[in-house]
Amino acid sequence: MLLAIVIAVIKMLILFAVLMLLVAYGTLAERKVSGHIQDRYGPLYCGPKALLQPFADGLKLFFKEDIVASRSDKFLYFLAPMIAIVPAILAIGVIPFGESVTLFGRKIPLVMTDINVAILYLLAVSSFSVYAIVFGGWSANSKYPLLGGLRSAAQFISYELILGLSIMGVLMIVGSFSLVDIVHYQRHMWMVVYQPLAFILYMIAATAELNRLPFDLPEAESELVGGYHTEYSSMKFAMFFLGEYANMVVTSAVAVCLFLGGWYSPVAFLAWIPGPIWFLIKVVVIFFFLLWVRWTYPRFRYDQLMGFSWKYLLPLSLLNIVATGGAMLFIVGGV
């Protein structure tokens, strides 16, 4: 009993440390990638290859003056940055990152907890991320944040639906809500081969949920100053920033589990590389993809954003479910 608790705590600490490390270097990667895409160098001077830049940024944010907007609603103004980081940290609890390892004769599964409603849990937990933006936007009592929060609420309701429906095809094939079962199913073939449309829909909806370009209407710096976090400074702003990148890491990890074979190696002769390493590589690739998209596409207009979701993505995701059902009934035979 005590040993089980110790193991759980160690796993928790490792997961949290890896998440925070990915977040820190995610911000550096964002600046480097954006620099090179725009034919600049990006950050250069802080440490070798600017590897100390994330820590310098963190230190700077710590020592900045913490300005509290005087007409703001204090309780929600303080609550919003706290909520921002919560969904990602809750979500890493169900993400499997490797097959079980045997240490001192004890079998330790490389996942915090394997519950039979893991996918639903992820959807439920991720639905809290919108409250940080909505409350942050409303409580500052200022025009631009309010518009940002408003846009975020509408955008979130539309794209949460697409996100949930896009996963359904995968669940129908595997027949389980557990992420571990889903990854085991992909031992020989990645799910993206059976469900290419679902993968595309998932990535679009996930980008929209993360409020990143081309769907970054809630912060839209060229029209709304900074959107929902205009009135935040110092560590409160950093919490929003942290939450955004942690959500990116978690979204990438979920995409890897659902569509890209989790911790399994894509080719047989590279199977000697341990599972967690493969998992990390795939997560970083998806993360890079998100950065790439952000610095390539222009922003949607607001009506285009809503129309795109309800007129194109929703019918497509329903079609995907019907097609998957039909294929399972007629080709595979039975459910």
Partner: peptide
């Protein structure tokens, strides 16, 4: 949680903020 926290209360807040 998905239906109420993820959609319905967000919708209430949307109207209240509007």
């Amino acid at each position: 949680v998905i239906v109420y926290a993820g959609a319905i209360v967000v919708f209430f807040l949307f109207v209240l903020m509007l």
